[in-house]
Simulated scan of single mutants.
Amino acid sequence: MQSNPALHFFRTFIYLRLRDYKIHMYQINPNKLLLSKWTSMSPQYKEKHFIVTKLIRDEEEAVIKCVIEAVINKNQHTITWQVLKSPDNWQQGWK
């Protein structure tokens, strides 16, 4: 059985794109997020620096969401913890 070169190229391209995407994502342990500091890469209303102030868990005690608080004005936002994994949107620590 002969392999299709175009199909091989496509599969390789998809594999490399997915691998690069995973490499560029932060590895985060959701159980250690409490009181961690984050910098928004696209601040709105001058809210750039945040602290995780609360973890929201499901009935099996798995973290599903977290509450982040803006340092500048104490506004709180509830987000899924997975959004913090994207370096395009968030950086760990205050930058």
Score class of each variant (00 low, 15 high):
1 M>D: 10
2 Q>M: 07
3 S>Q: 14
6 A>V: 13
7 L>V: 13
7 L>Q: 11
10 F>T: 01
13 F>T: 15
14 I>S: 02
17 R>H: 10
18 L>E: 05
20 D>Y: 12
21 Y>L: 13
22 K>I: 09
24 H>V: 03
24 H>P: 04
26 Y>D: 08
28 I>T: 03
30 P>G: 05
32 K>Y: 11
32 K>G: 05
34 L>N: 07
35 L>F: 14
35 L>W: 07
35 L>A: 11
38 W>D: 05
40 S>Y: 01
41 M>C: 12
41 M>A: 09
42 S>P: 01
42 S>K: 10
43 P>S: 02
43 P>T: 03
44 Q>S: 11
45 Y>D: 15
47 E>I: 04
47 E>C: 14
47 E>K: 15
49 H>G: 10
50 F>S: 00
54 K>D: 05
58 D>V: 13
58 D>W: 11
58 D>Y: 14
58 D>P: 08
59 E>Y: 07
62 A>L: 07
63 V>K: 10
63 V>H: 05
64 I>K: 09
64 I>A: 00
64 I>Y: 08
65 K>W: 08
66 C>E: 08
67 V>Y: 07
69 E>Y: 09
71 V>H: 07
72 I>M: 10
73 N>C: 06
73 N>L: 03
73 N>M: 06
74 K>L: 12
76 Q>V: 09
80 T>Q: 07
81 W>S: 01
83 V>H: 03
83 V>A: 00
84 L>S: 05
87 P>C: 02
89 N>H: 09
90 W>F: 12
91 Q>T: 10
92 Q>L: 06
93 G>E: 02
93 G>R: 01
94 W>L: 12
94 W>E: 01
95 K>G: 05
